[in-house]
Amino acid sequence: MANQNATHGESHVAHHFVDSEQQLDSSKLGMWLFLVTEVLFFGGLFVAYIVYRAWNPELFYMSAKELSTTLGAINTVVLIGSSLTIALAVRAAQLNQRALLSRYLIVTILLACVFLVIKYFEYTSKFAVGILPGEFYTYEGIDHPGAPIFFSIYYMMTGLHGLHVIIGIGLMVYLVVKARAGTYTAAYYTPVEVTALYWHLVDLIWIFLFPLLYLIE
């Protein structure tokens, strides 16, 4: 809208809000509601997981042995670290430390990339032996007819999660550009805050994926 900022001294407050307080509160609630939809979106896959695990407990114990606990654990720590750095980024924005803000964001992006690289090596080593999703599955090391289903679930859950990581990286790159331009101040850092919320959720989901997929011994 053309006159978006016309009536305000505080230029970042959109015309239909009273003040930045109302704007930040609204954006946060909006983001939380979005996270609710994310939880339920992943929830569908968790339902599939639970139903099939309850049907074939053996299958899950046998198949999970193929996944590398070490890599999974490293990735867990990497994501925890990235959650910390983005929380620090929000703090930096609140304290008006602009240089620190973009530095923390960049570290977060790097950690996210580390996560993806590790995931990439995990995937390719699986592909190499014929562990592919669905009807492309050719691996013969697991003596259970349901093995393709386990790995389909594995690929869908981690794939969807990986997609969220990539989206998160995109959002953070945007934040870095904006932060460099000096958009975010102690008075206005809503995008940083809501992106951080999103990123923590990505971490949260991994916290559940890790024991459910990797740690069934």
């Binding site: 939380w32 609710v36 939880v39 339920l40 929830g43 968790f46 339902v47």
Partner: peptide, 9 residues
């Protein structure tokens, strides 16, 4: 909101 998402899951 978060607890609701859990409840419905």
């Amino acid at each position: 909101a978060l607890l609701f998402s859990l409840l419905f899951f």
